[in-house]
Design a protein around this nucleic acid. Structure first.
Lengths: 340, 340
DNA sequence: ATTTCTTTGTAAAGCGCTTTACTAATCCGC
DNA sequence: GCGGATTAGTAAAGCGCTTTACAAAGAAAT
């Protein structure tokens, strides 16, 4: 294969007998040319199979037509569904997506946030799933053009998009309460995390509405992982917790819990009821099918891109702009009246 | 926030009292400078908080330090796990990944393949999951620098990485055979797809080794989707197929099958045995836990990036270079002796 | 003391595009 | 047939970096 250089704008211009400016302007829609000229240029483009060099274009224009997407873990179905939705929406807008996973490694988030600084990307959709010590918030406030999704970075001034965590908790609590559960353990993030705090609040509120001061919720705090789900389930068993139901704050946690309950012959929902959160995996095929609060993950993904694109960053005020996506409950078979 | 322009190499040079060349060469390791000069420059970089503009760098160097990754569907756990592994490996090599989902839409694959042409990306990892009419193969052969993963694009000259499909089929067949199954239906892609062909061959061979000419496999061909799994299960039931076991060629298909079996009160494995393929979802929590051929998805992801990086594209010969990753069987509880 | 290497730099071209500022040609009304 | 507006097009600067080709200064060799 002989090394024919890829054609440049100049080549096209030469072939069409016009200047590069003319070609460039034609291509970018800034010029109405007489039919003849236009056709000559278009023929030249076609016959040379010309495509603009994106790097030159980006350097010249000072933007990249690429958005950054940083998530904790791409393999996690919740995030991968989110990624899929963002990619889909971005593609529609002819934007590329530069994908980065932090895997909760220290410094990763900071590093990826910097991508924006030298306009590697035009904007960033940022999702974290652990508490921040202030570093992240400071960086976000300095760089701008980031949308915070799913979990808050407290102190950051950026448009935010969460699911309606409080309502999620409330729905779970109301459901559990209506079955007669008064004491439930909440397994989720720690109290610094908005998702955990709000879900827990909602849960307790609903329980109290049904059972007033008999209502009680214990909080087990840890990562949103299968591993922590197992750990929490073990703790639940070992401390012979008298709660009759568990509210597992993510699919992953629920999976971990169910795994050990299965191994220890704890029957769900006979011995203990479980209600999950997210509903992205095939939970309906579990035994028993898992009752769950569903997040509209794809909508969250699409909406986050919209927000990134529609906010006018020039004069965006650090307002308390927080958008909440609705959740709902999907009732399956993992909740029953308490045995005890 | 006043509009301080982001610092450029020139600013650094000025601040350090040297030329831009010097700074550039220092940063790219091409120069040993006397300690004093070096320190001056480094101080300047630090105090200006300078970071090179990636677009300028890319334009100048003619490469992007970005690889493209095109998959059929990011939300599908199999692919998302693959994506996660590739991203992880890429990050280690300081490469960005540009992610694209084809969603089996016509023209998408072609379009993304073009990314490589104007060095938008330095290489492409390409995974498709349907048959090609020759267009893709032609394009791939023209552009080069692509690794084909998971499913073949017949006629394409590129390094290829698949799992050991034949052995996967064989393992499934041997397992089923040892339980006394002679007649099984294979649900998977059509005969133009290497994954389907090889798995089916392996399956039949194993069955024949156990039951010689009593062995029989029916092939249901369709997409690797939950939807098709449902469809196939319905067909299975409606035609009262006398097969005693089903080999579902992906997690998705298996999920679809199990869904309808559950709805129709077909008991697994009592009425019919099922064996799946992939094992990326939480199949162990299904009822019953699904026996499955496992693909080393993460390893496939990592390896595909390695292959992209290690092949010397200058003098790569269209050899029959096909690499196979090992699969294994994980026995759970969805296979039992046939009832009939 | 002159030549020859190194060391320590520099100036300037080039990557391929966009865009600003400008000019030449054509058309219109009178 | 002239001034002015419009149309059709150009030249050249600039985006921020890398890299080639070259130079000055000091050290080593003759």
């Amino acid at each position: 294969m002989l090394k024919t250089k890829t054609p440049s704008l100049k080549d096209v211009a030469a072939a069409a007998g016009v200047s590069v400016t003319t070609v460039s302007r034609l291509m970018n829609g800034g010029l109405d040319l007489p039919f003849q000229t236009k056709k000559r240029i278009e023929d030249a483009i076609r016959s040379l199979n010309y495509r603009p060099n994106p790097h030159a274009r980006r350097l010249s224009m000072g933007r990249s037509d690429t958005i950054g997407l940083v998530v904790p873990d791409i393999a996690n179905p919740f995030f991968s569904t989110l990624v899929a939705a963002v990619e889909d929406a971005a593609d529609e807008k002819r934007l590329a997506v530069s994908l980065h996973a932090t895997l909760n490694r220290a410094g990763r988030e900071v590093e990826y946030l910097q991508l924006i600084e030298r306009n590697h990307v035009d904007g960033l959709i940022f999702v974290t799933n652990h508490a921040d010590d202030g570093t992240l918030a400071a960086l976000i406030n300095r760089t701008g053009k980031v949308i915070i999704v799913d979990e808050d970075v407290p102190g950051s001034n950026a448009p935010k998009l969460f699911c309606d965590n409080d309502r999620g908790g409330y729905l779970a609590g109301a459901h559990l309460g209506s079955y007669g559960h008064k004491h439930v353990v909440f397994i989720g993030g720690d109290e610094r995390m908005i998702s955990a705090r709000r879900r827990c609040n909602g849960l307790l509120r609903a329980l109290q509405e049904t059972h007033s001061d008999q209502a009680r919720v214990d909080r087990y705090a840890g990562e949103y992982s299968v591993e922590y789900g197992r750990e929490a389930a073990l703790r639940f068993l070992e401390e012979k917790n008298s709660a009759t139901a568990i509210f597992a704050s993510s699919d992953e946690i629920a999976i971990g819990v169910i795994e050990v309950f299965k191994a220890r012959d704890v029957s769900v929902p006979r011995d203990v009821s479980i209600i999950g959160f997210d509903d992205v995996g095939p939970l309906h095929l579990f035994s028993p099918p898992l009752t769950v609060i569903r997040q509209p993950v794809r909508e969250i993904g699409r909406r986050s891109l919209e927000m990134l694109l529609e906010t006018n960053w020039q004069d965006w005020k650090p307002s308390a702009s927080e958008e909440l996506m609705p959740v709902d409950i999907v009732v399956r078979n993992s909740v029953a009246p308490p045995a005890k």
